[in-house]
């Protein structure tokens, strides 16, 4: 016999279910008066330096159907490539109940530690048993030295991680959960 290592196993994930918004964005589903504002409504204060950008997107399932019950979280560096302080750089969005669209007004992140500018993205919804981790990079940036993008075995999947420049500081980032054009999901 040897001593026990004593590590604890991580608690199992469970789907966020169809009512994730009650807990995470209650004001969005009309539950007012408990929290003044939904968490992650604005990632940066109004006077934070940096280029203002607008990100939009939808999440689609393996049959091409747009999910209208998804919650997406974002974690990004500021324009200088620094994380924080506090909860600065964090945002949370619910997809629109009719269209499935989400929209985030934020600041273009600076490059961090040799990586091209990007935003960490985490997706949960009914039917997703463990939250899906991915990244949003920006069309037009130099990705030739990014450690993750250059390492992808299937380089034809790399575009799934790159938000399309749609002009005037807007970028489009659609996520595909399964099938043709399946987004690269990460285990990092």
């Amino acid at each position: 016999m040897v001593q026990q290592l004593g590590y604890l196993p991580e608690s199992a994930s469970q789907t966020a279910g169809p009512y994730v918004h009650i807990g995470c964005t209650p004001n969005f589903v009309g539950i007012h008066g408990i929290y003044a504002e939904d968490l992650g409504a604005t990632p940066f204060p109004e006077d934070a330096p940096g280029q203002r950008i607008t990100l939009t997107g939808v999440v689609r399932d393996g049959l091409g159907k747009t999910l209208n019950d998804v919650m997406v979280e974002f974690w990004q560096a500021d324009a200088q490539g620094r994380y924080g302080p506090g909860a600065q750089g964090f945002a949370r969005r619910a997809s629109n109940f009719e269209t499935g669209e989400w929209e985030l007004k934020t600041i273009k992140p600076g490059a961090v530690a040799g990586m091209a500018p990007h935003i960490g993205v985490w997706v949960v919804a009914r039917g997703i048993n463990i939250g899906l981790q991915t990244r949003l990079y920006f069309e037009g940036d130099d990705h030739s030295k990014d450690p993750l993008l250059t390492r992808l075995e299937h380089q034809n999947r790399r575009d799934t991680l790159i938000a399309r420049d749609t002009g005037n500081g807007t970028y489009r980032f659609d996520i595909c959960l399964q099938g043709d054009g399946e987004t690269v999901f990460l285990d990092m």
């Binding site: 393996g62 506090g86 960490g120 959960l177 990092m188």
Partner: peptide, 27 residues
């Protein structure tokens, strides 16, 4: 619900970077 909403391809693994190792701190 998990049938059409689960990725079919393998997750891409890598060592965690600052993006994964930092996180929001709530006051």
């Amino acid at each position: 619900s998990s049938i059409p909403r689960s990725p079919k391809l393998a997750l891409v693994s890598g060592a965690p970077t600052a993006t994964e190792q930092t996180g929001p701190v709530f006051g």
